[in-house]
């Protein structure tokens, strides 16, 4: 009986490892290409013969990688805190305050979530131009500075905060703003972290909006720069692109490994409520 469960376990592990080959394999494949020396062909063997970091060094020196990294950090750095602040403010009002028009505002916000970005990207492109937001950090971040999803996500979280806690704060003489900031916000911290992660991942990897809103290469984010580099894909720069791809992915990976439980809880909350 015992050997039977042992065998089962071994089979289970083999199956699970085989799936890892599919999910993680492409990363390793790309990493191996990035580590291949100049003398080895890109598709010449799976493993690098003499692993070298030369391609990673080249990614920094032969491209404006640092510039693109800085651009991406700035845009994400604007988007994340502002989305947390503005979305939680709006979400709190929609969850906890009684006012005329509340349900209309909420319905409008929720219904915009269905609208595909590609429907309104052309007018948006024009508006961004008129407001002087093309090729600017604010212009790149502005779509994530407050989002319909964020507002809805935060509202759902505030609905779960026990009213009694807020009421006792009002009895102590706190005003609306203080109750939101000091009582409600600390209680929805997990949701705030989930929203931060979501906004980070989206903004860090966003492609279409930065693509149409940036025309100057000095304003490229990493995603756009990578896509541009790969335009001449079959050239000799594939190892460099692979190295840059790995470098671009590392921040997302680190944040994921650090905050994985919030990725998962945020996603299931969003699924249940959204």
């Amino acid at each position: 009986m015992k050997t039977k469960t042992q065998t089962k376990k071994i089979i289970l592990y083999i199956v699970m490892l085989a799936i890892c080959v599919v999910t993680v394999g492409p990363f390793l494949y790309t990493l191996f290409i990035a580590l291949k020396p100049a003398t080895q062909g890109i598709y010449d063997g799976l493993l690098p013969a003499n692993p070298t970091f030369a391609n990673f060094v080249d990614a920094f020196y032969k491209t404006d990688f640092l510039r693109y990294l800085l651009n991406t950090v700035i845009v994400t750095g604007i988007a994340v805190p502002f989305n947390l602040l503005f979305s939680s403010m709006a979400g709190y009002a929609l969850a906890r305050m009684n006012f005329k028009g509340r349900s209309i505002v909420l319905t409008l916000i929720i219904s915009t979530m269905t609208v595909p970005f590609q429907l309104y990207m052309a007018p948006l492109f024009q508006i961004a131009g008129e407001l002087g937001l093309r090729n600017s950090y604010v212009g790149l971040a502005v779509l994530q500075v407050s989002t319909a999803f964020g507002i809805y996500f935060m509202r759902q979280a505030f609905l779960t905060v026990p009213k009694e806690l807020e009421e006792s704060a009002y009895l102590d003489g706190a005003n609306r703003f203080q109750v939101w900031w000091k009582v409600a916000m600390p209680l929805v911290k997990p949701t705030l972290i989930s929203l931060a992660i979501y906004t980070f991942t989206f903004t860090w990897g966003d492609y279409l909006w930065p693509l149409i809103n940036t025309t100057e290469s000095s304003m490229y984010t990493l995603s756009i720069a990578l896509a541009q580099m790969s335009q001449n894909f079959d050239g000799g720069n594939l190892k460099l692109i692979s190295a840059a791809s790995i470098l671009t992915t590392i921040p997302s990976l680190l944040i994921f490994i650090w905050l994985q439980k919030y990725f998962i809880s945020g996603q299931t909350d969003g699924a249940v409520k959204g």
């Binding site: 699970m16 993680v24 790309t30 290409i33 990578l226 594939l238 692109i241």
Partner: peptide, 25 residues
């Protein structure tokens, strides 16, 4: 294993596309 299966989700789409473009060549 959960972490390793989730990795593609957090990969920027541009990177994912580049990796698969090489794999599919």
């Amino acid at each position: 294993f959960r972490v390793l299966y989730y990795l593609p989700v957090v990969t920027p789409i541009v990177v994912a596309a580049l990796m698969w473009k090489m794999l599919y060549s």
